[in-house]
Amino acid sequence: MPLKESEAIILRTYPLREADLLVTFFTRLEGKVRGVARSAKKSKRRFGGALEPLTYVRAYYEDREGQELTRLDSCDVIESPLANEVSYPRAVALGHVAELLGELLPEREANDAVFRLTLSVLATLSGANVWMPVTYFELWLTRLTGFLPELSECIVCGEALNGSRAFFHALADGLMCPEDKRLASAEMSSDSRSLAAQMFRAPVESFSSTTWAKARASDLRKFLVQTLERHIEKKLVTAAMLEKISS
């Protein structure tokens, strides 16, 4: 079979056999693909730093008949996360992006909107200011994967929430008004809801001029992570690590 060529974002690698790596990468052409990079562990010549998570590459790979895993032939680096300082908050945020893509994207299903979203968020995720890009990515990814409920009305009574208080719960599929909220619900501020509405109307770069504190839109991020975790039916490792970051 001929070599395929596609822009791709490396999501994760796992050691395989003595010297190989099992690589999960998100291609523009075919969506999430899993493949084997032969001798990638032993020799760094062919892949160099191209297999680091969240590296934007041009990938060359080959499908083999009757085999589930593709053969990753080579990668040319287009953009590497190592080009900028990797602070601890940035490393966790990059890991969060990679984990979300790895968990939410189905295999071999092209999704250009998510690919473009990832590239634009990675471009703004170059410094230690991670909270805005993380919020933007979680919000849009939840929407693009079809898991985002309507944020402007109560899921129980259907009343509009504009201006009034809104609550969410780990086991509920959306926001609730004060009358219908469940026990142990958390509140989502109207600031966070209007921020979400703004984020749906503007590109990520337009928010990058201001530095966000961790507290800003933390209720929105909690709601989004709870929504995603309920759909993938597991806890996100990096979400817990983001929670522990102090600022």
Partner: peptide, 9 residues
């Protein structure tokens, strides 16, 4: 440190 493997400082 490896966030994807859940390893923090």
């Amino acid at each position: 440190i490896s966030p994807l493997r859940g390893v923090g400082p």
